[in-house]
Design a protein around this nucleic acid. Structure first.
Lengths: 222, 222
DNA sequence: ACCTGAACACCGTTCAAGT
DNA sequence: ACCTGAACACCGTTCAAGT
């Protein structure tokens, strides 16, 4: 009995040709459904019904792939605060919080963002939005230029740190260590005590963002 | 012919008993000789002449192992600026630069420091040193408490970003993207132009640290 | 030019079984 | 209690060979 290639080709649609766009799109699907940890060359090849080696025609390595995924996901950042009313500092903080939320929902993405920083259109739009808000606040150009980098870096690092859920034991380790600090060996730690760990995380974050914005706005360049 | 276990035991010294300290010490040797990428359970077991599974009696997982290595390496941070003369801000920046140098010389360590933050004695000494300098500058306790976290976080993220040597192409990708930004779509990026990428890295870093210290010192807590 | 199979050189972690 | 061998379930990347 002869097989029916035509029919079976119609049942499962013909394998689409590989393109960089297709690979990135499949990667984004994968990060949404299974997390960044599963966006591997082998898993991705499986999803695209091809061999891992085939992907290397379009993507240099795994790091570049992850950077492309991030570029894509940055489209989810809410930039509307740029054109609303209210204090420019608050709106700047809102954009950064939205950026952090995107990183936050895909564990591992923030860490990869630190190593392979994106340069796609969505990243540029984010930079542009932040620069416009700094300009609205009359922050000098030189300080805005150098500050934007640190603003994004700190937001990314903050997200990286909180994205991986700290296990109870890990957290306890630091808490215990800080509480055990005796005044004779660690006088300042002992003096500040609980305050080092205190405060609701959102309040700490808001203070942190405001602190950065203040620093950028008020520190003249040499 | 019968083998000579006694003699061969003397030629190669008896396998030392496994301890957590021994495992961490071997890990530190390994990170120095082969880099953090090679500090794996399997490679480490090989170095200790044991089976990978044996290590799990003393170490929960690879992340915990890497955190222990960092704890240990933080002993190299130069804390002497705490007790020298000069502006407290400059001495604070010096300590942070020394911290970054440690992270810098062991690629990958900074990234791991973001995920599994250390809590060992060397980390506490670093925190204590920074707090003492902030106290010398009469920074209010509440701001010091919340600021210290962000100070270390930003320094770590900065090191993580620069530890992995940016390939020429990656760097070009961002440069090209920024230069290609047209005034109609990205007006602020176009207006700032080269300045976004300009300046010698040490000058940018010094400004960044000073900016953070200013922010912490001058942003009141709610 | 693109795609594949196969291989090389690795990983983390678990678990039954031994001492 | 500690250690081991073996297994399970994966990785990234390269390369000769095919189309």
């Amino acid at each position: 009995m002869i097989s029916e290639p035509t029919r079976s080709r119609r049942e499962r649609p013909a394998k689409p040709a590989l393109t960089r766009e297709g690979i990135v799109a499949a990667s984004v699907d994968l990060v949404r459904s299974e997390g960044l940890k599963r966006v591997t060359m082998r898993r991705l090849a499986e999803a695209l019904d091809t061999a891992p080696a085939s992907l290397y025609v379009y993507v240099r390595n795994t790091a570049e792939l992850h950077a492309a995924v991030l570029d894509e996901l940055l489209g989810e950042v809410d930039l509307t605060p740029v054109h609303t009313t209210g204090e420019w500092q608050d709106r700047l903080a809102d954009v950064l919080r939205s950026y952090m939320r995107v990183l936050f929902t895909h564990p591992g993405l923030a860490a990869s963002a630190l190593v392979a920083r994106p340069s796609g259109p969505n990243y540029l739009s984010l930079v542009e939005a932040l620069l416009e808000l700094l300009a609205e606040g009359d922050v000098p150009d030189g300080q805005a230029s150098w500050g934007i980098d640190l603003l994004l870096l700190t937001a990314t690092a903050n997200a990286a740190e909180h994205a991986v859920p700290r296990s109870e034991e890990d957290w306890d380790a630091l808490t215990v260590a800080l509480r055990a600090a005796t005044p004779d060996t660690y006088p300042r730690i002992a003096a500040l005590g609980e305050d080092l760990l205190s405060g609701p995380p959102p309040a700490r974050l808001s203070w942190g963002l405001r602190m950065l914005i203040n620093g950028i706005a008020n520190t003249p360049r040499p």
